[in-house]
């Protein structure tokens, strides 16, 4: 029991900040990333709007992969008020709003920040990011494999 409590206290955590689920690869890559993080011993926590989170909940009804889920605004509140923070933070970006959320996470959280960039205009997004973070980017829209390949090359779960 004591060992379990210590393990929980020392377990590293990772926050996945989902963007608008308009681009199909987001849900697939999020589930894959949750899997890899869990295998590496991280506790993954997902934050997103209702649609983005519901896509994951429906795809994983028995929660084999998905663990804790937070409302996006609630997650921002908790981190800003220093009630909670994470070791790693992944922000999914395929539009301008995603850049704003990534910049915000970089400003309010002490987590190592990764920007997962995809979609039709992924290269424009990469060139417009001028704050410190590690980019993981590919022109993935329907096919998650280009983005999965980039994710595997960076292997942030080994951080």
């Amino acid at each position: 029991m004591i060992a379990l409590a210590v393990e929980e206290k020392t377990q590293r955590s990772a926050l996945l900040v989902l963007g608008c689920p308009q681009v199909p690869v987001q849900t697939s890559i999020a589930l894959y990333l949750i899997h890899r993080l869990t295998q590496a011993g991280f506790k993954p926590v997902v934050a997103g709007n209702r649609s983005a989170v519901t896509l994951l909940v429906v795809a994983d009804p028995k929660r084999y992969y998905l663990g804790e889920v937070l409302d996006l605004d609630r997650a921002i509140d908790l981190i800003t008020e220093k009630k909670r923070d994470f070791d790693l933070c992944f922000v999914f970006i395929h539009n301008d709003a995603g850049i704003s959320y990534a910049a915000t996470m970089g400003a309010i959280s002490k987590a190592r920040l990764y920007a997962i960039i995809y979609g039709e205009h992924y290269d424009q997004i990469v060139s417009s990011i001028d704050f410190p973070c590690q980019n993981i980017a590919a022109k993935s829209i329907h096919n998650p494999m280009p983005l999965k390949k980039m994710l595997d090359e960076v292997a942030p779960w080994g951080a």
Binding site: T80, S100, Y101, A107, F131
Partner: peptide, 14 residues
């Protein structure tokens, strides 16, 4: 980012 206005933490690029 995170500055509170109208009881909401503001999102954006500094």
């Amino acid at each position: 980012p995170g500055f509170k206005i109208f009881d909401t933490h503001i999102i954006g690029i500094p």
